[in-house]
Amino acid sequence: MFTIFKKELFAYLNSLVAYITIGVFLLVLSLLLWVFPETSVLDYGYASLESLFYLTPYLFMFLIPGITMRSFAEEKKEGTFELLVTRPLTDWQIVFGKYLAALALVLFALLPTLVYYISVYQLGTTLGNIDTGAVIGSYIGLFLLGANFAAIGIFSSALTKNQVIAFAIAIFLCFFVFSGFDSLSQLLSLQKFDGVLINLGINEHYQSISRGVLDTRDLVYFISVIVLFLSITKTVLGGRKW
């Protein structure tokens, strides 16, 4: 598994795709947080990073599919997937290796945003006048959200040889799992199940963790979604044996 992880990570870092994708993500996020008046933290009147944790999930819907779209799709297109599966590796090792490499890039994308926290911490009228506990909780929520989206992206890439199609499928699935259940709960015919539907979506659990409270139910939910999509990915890969 470590061999796959190292191979995938180096493949990402040796290509411009990862740098361009992460660079665009950070540029857009910086413009939204510091330049555009509607979302600028400078116009809040108080030290807060609410905009960061509200906007990042929607940017993740494009960033992470852009990172994961090549995971299996490129291997299948170039014919190297057959070589990969002939190695003494199990399907789970292949899936986890590629997943962990994608997750490492998500972490690389998040680390530079700590500069925003330091900036707001320093810019407050009273130095450090920011809810650090809520910020830590929100970052944990963002990382778990990124881990879920990475699992969805890996699954989408395993479905096709075309990276563009994998990218589009991943965006749709990420959006639906994040906020689609919230929209379904608003339908008149489904309103009596609104509590169940809302809890099926990621957004409810992400918002819960972002308040700075680590609830076991939320952690179990995030882990369950990751396991679900990685298990389906492993099943898709196993289909080649039939």
Rank of each mutant, 00 (worst) to 15 (best):
L173E: 10
S189Y: 12
G195R: 11
L188N: 13
Y206A: 00
G201M: 06
L197D: 06
F172R: 09
L187M: 14
D194N: 15
F193D: 13
F193T: 10
C174D: 08
N199D: 06
F178V: 00
S189T: 14
D194A: 15
Q207V: 04
L188S: 15
F178L: 00
Q186I: 07
S189V: 15
D182Y: 12
S189Q: 12
S189E: 14
S179D: 08
N203S: 11
L190A: 06
G201Y: 07
F181A: 01
S185R: 12
F176W: 05
G201W: 06
F175R: 04
I171C: 06
Q186W: 10
S208H: 04
D182S: 07
L197M: 06
E204K: 12
V177N: 03
Q191K: 15
N199Y: 07
D194P: 11
E204C: 04
F176L: 01
L190G: 05
F175C: 01
G180K: 01
V196G: 08
F178Q: 00
L197V: 03
K192G: 13
E204W: 06
L200P: 10
G195V: 11
S179R: 09
Y206R: 01
S183F: 14
I198R: 05
L187K: 07
S179V: 08
S179W: 09
S189A: 14
L190T: 05
D194W: 11
S208W: 06
L187F: 12
F178S: 00
S185D: 11
Y206M: 01
I198Y: 05
